[in-house]
Design a protein around this nucleic acid. Structure first.
Lengths: 232, 232
DNA sequence: TTATTAATTGTCGTTTTGACAATTAATAAT
DNA sequence: ATTATTAATTGTCAAAACGACAATTAATAA
């Protein structure tokens, strides 16, 4: 009969794929690894799951420590558990992907943890299976963003439709008709138009919008169709 | 500095939510637990992740052992890792949900493992957080089935549209217009009409269909809209 | 031959979609 | 001051998808 005592025990870690948007391009936040093996190589931000915390707790803790941010969008992706994925000792890692407003990120932490933002399409090779994690996260981000209004999480409180438009194009790596896009986005009923305009980058200026938080949280589970000609 | 050696180690398990369809109702397969604690209580089928296997491997092994089936639909759901979820020792469990053709299930295994099929809406209380796992799996099944043609996995090779119709209604716990349903299902182009008819249960008989495997695998990632008036 | 039953095919107005064009509000140039 | 320029915004329209609803068909039983 199977008993607990005879079973092998493993290390359990979390790794976070942190996405941000600088107004032009999709970026991810990487850190220089601080322990052996592969010390000083680029990796995702991660850590071991402590004795008194759940994996979700651990991911939030790591994120807080390395970005200064709390209560950000964080979603469990999948577990990575090939027996030999860590050469030192068997470690299973729970992958999370996170969407943050890049401007809220506390830049002084760059120094503390040797963190750095990279263009998603121009990033260094990462340790272990972290490259696969990034690829999976990107795919999942695309999938979710096509159905649910999550990309707002990467924009400041006040944003314009052109900003949102560029972000959608970045995430999906495709061109989207501006006219149809703004109609579709406004028809969700999730945006509240503000009186103020953003004048940087255009003569006419683009109206700021903010999220209707109430409707956003009420409808965060609803299926939308935010991408034209959608084929995954 | 954080080192591997100082970190706590945990047991890692898998638990499978196995869905089946008997032609009328959605069912799940449960087993009587064979080890302490909570021995002889109903639980999901699960097991510890062995030293030389990934969690996916472990889930497949458990499923093979307890149902006799290989190569069935199996999808990672999420990890369950609250520190106190197992009273004996900290154990993290990866939840999987699986869709099988209930008729392929090898019934003699009922005796070997004290397994039993239960109506999804009339099941016993389960141990630990397994009740939550079932609730999560049900939600995820609904979500995925609304977008991707996965419910075929619970039907035999030859099936009729009325059978599929009942299954969709069961999964979504709602009535669906038969006329619109069959139009929508056939318009996916995934079904091949056979010459043979199923004569049980109706005078006219319903044509058998089979899945166009080629298109099915090519389009398994595509977004469909298989549920009318969809609001999650 | 007719009644019955469930499967199947059909109708049609409404809504959504997406390709494409025109207008507008500002600033910069003349 | 007038005009050119630029990007944001609003508009048009045909095709497709959607969903409420009805009629027909293929079999068996009466």
């Amino acid at each position: 009969m199977i008993e607990y005592s005879r079973q092998p025990h493993y290390l359990v870690a979390v790794d976070c794929i942190v996405f941000g948007f600088d107004g032009e391009h999709l970026k991810i936040l990487l850190v220089k690894r601080g322990l052996e093996p592969e010390i000083n190589k680029w990796s995702l931000m991660g850590g071991f799951v402590g004795a008194n915390e759940s994996p979700d707790d651990a991911a939030n803790r790591v994120l807080k420590k390395m970005t200064g941010l709390e209560g950000v969008y964080l979603e469990q992706m999948q577990i990575y558990g090939e027996p030999d994925r860590d050469p030192i000792e068997r470690t299973l890692s729970v992958g999370y992907f996170s969407l943050i407003d890049i401007h809220k990120y506390e830049a002084q932490l760059n120094d503390d943890y040797e963190a750095e933002w990279f263009l998603i399409n121009d990033r260094p090779k990462l340790i272990f299976d972290h490259n696969q994690m990034v690829a999976d996260a990107r795919k999942k981000l695309r999938y979710k963003a096509a159905l649910h209004p999550i990309l707002f999480e990467m924009l400041p409180k006040k944003f314009t439709i052109p900003q949102l438009h560029i972000l959608f194009e970045e995430v999906n790596d495709t061109k989207i008709d501006t006219r149809n896009f703004s109609r579709k986005i406004t028809s969700t009923g999730l945006l509240i138009k503000l009186a103020e305009k953003d004048r940087t980058g255009s003569k006419k200026g683009a109206f700021y919008f903010k999220l209707d938080k109430k409707k956003y949280h009420a409808n965060s589970q609803a299926f939308l169709n935010l991408m034209p000609n959608l084929k995954v």
